[in-house]
């Protein structure tokens, strides 16, 4: 604790004071927790029959297969689509030709600035709200467009993060533009980008919950079905939220591991949501 640069190693009086703060803080946290638990207890949230459904094998199967699996399917399809779209748009944004660069830039900016939910609702109506499977695909398409645009920006930042000498050396030995990109820049960029891509998976997974608004399958639909049947809104919410948190924590652990493994102690790639002129005036795309 004393190795933080923000405060000195505490002396005896400060230690006592910190113990007091610690005790007060613990009291506050425990007090809030106790209050929440007490209120939930009074409201009957912890009664056995409200939780029984989560240990009944049939319903567990429904939650895991109809719920989690569908959610993961939507997120997975969206991520695969987003990677393809992101690669296309990202390379497009890095292109030397204006006719390719500007449309890519426009598409990326558009889908990054529009809320996913708005896209989802629109796609849902375009696909036909009464058609079978339209809400599933509305979620997938909306998430693909949004995450694809973000990944395009990640790709651009990743390629630009490859040391300049690599590109120059590749040109110097006579490689063509495509070869430089495919053989030299992209393999190194992907390594830098992987943690950012996984973080984007987390975003996509969380956003599948928005599918609720377009009546999509997945955990949020199961949530509704279960609490309508058993009148246990809060327990169901807790279980569903835990499933999301669990999967996200696994993904976070994977991202951290990859970061250590592939990138080492270097700074993680930062991708800004703000468009700005390229700082050094290099050809990193317009505006």
């Amino acid at each position: 604790m004393s190795n933080s640069v923000l405060f000195d190693a505490p002396g005896p009086r400060t230690i006592r004071r910190h113990r007091l703060y610690g005790a007060l803080g613990a009291l506050l946290v425990l007090g809030v927790l106790a209050f929440v638990l007490h209120r939930f207890y009074d409201a009957g949230t912890f009664e056995g029959d409200k939780w029984e459904v989560f240990v009944t094998p049939d319903y567990v199967r429904v939650i895991l297969v109809d719920g989690l699996l569908n959610t993961l399917k939507m997120a997975g399809a969206a991520i695969v689509g987003a990677c393809v779209l992101g690669a296309l748009l990202g390379v497009g944004k890095l292109s030397d030709h204006r006719l390719v660069r500007w449309p890519s830039w426009l598409v990326v900016e558009f889908f990054r600035a529009v809320p996913v939910l708005l896209l989802m609702v629109f796609t849902w109506f375009v696909l036909g709200i009464n058609k079978e499977g339209s809400s599933f695909w509305a979620v997938v398409i909306a998430l693909t467009l949004y995450n694809g645009s973000v990944l395009a920006e990640v790709l651009r930042a990743g390629v630009n993060a490859v040391p300049k000498g690599q590109r120059e050396a590749a040109y110097a030995i006579g490689m063509r533009k495509t070869q430089v990109m495919n053989i030299v820049l992209l393999p190194q960029a992907v390594k830098i980008m992987l943690p950012a891509i996984i973080s984007q998976c987390i975003v996509a997974l969380k956003d599948t919950a928005l599918g609720q608004y377009v009546l999509a399958p997945g955990l949020t639909r199961i949530y509704k079905q279960i609490f309508l049947e058993f009148d246990n809104r809060v327990p169901t919410m807790i279980v569903i939220a835990s499933l999301y948190i669990l999967v996200n924590l696994l993904l976070t652990a994977l991202a951290t591991w990859l970061q250590h493994k592939l990138v080492g102690e270097r700074k993680p790639l930062e991708v800004s949501m703000i468009t700005r002129p390229a700082a050094d005036g290099t050809a990193t795309g317009p505006l």
């Binding site: 969380k206 809104r233 999301y244």
Partner: peptide, 19 residues
Amino acid sequence: NTPLVIVFAFFSFAGPTLS
């Protein structure tokens, strides 16, 4: 790590219970 929809749902439905 919780989807925003679930945070919303929590306060909309469990809020009254928690005063």
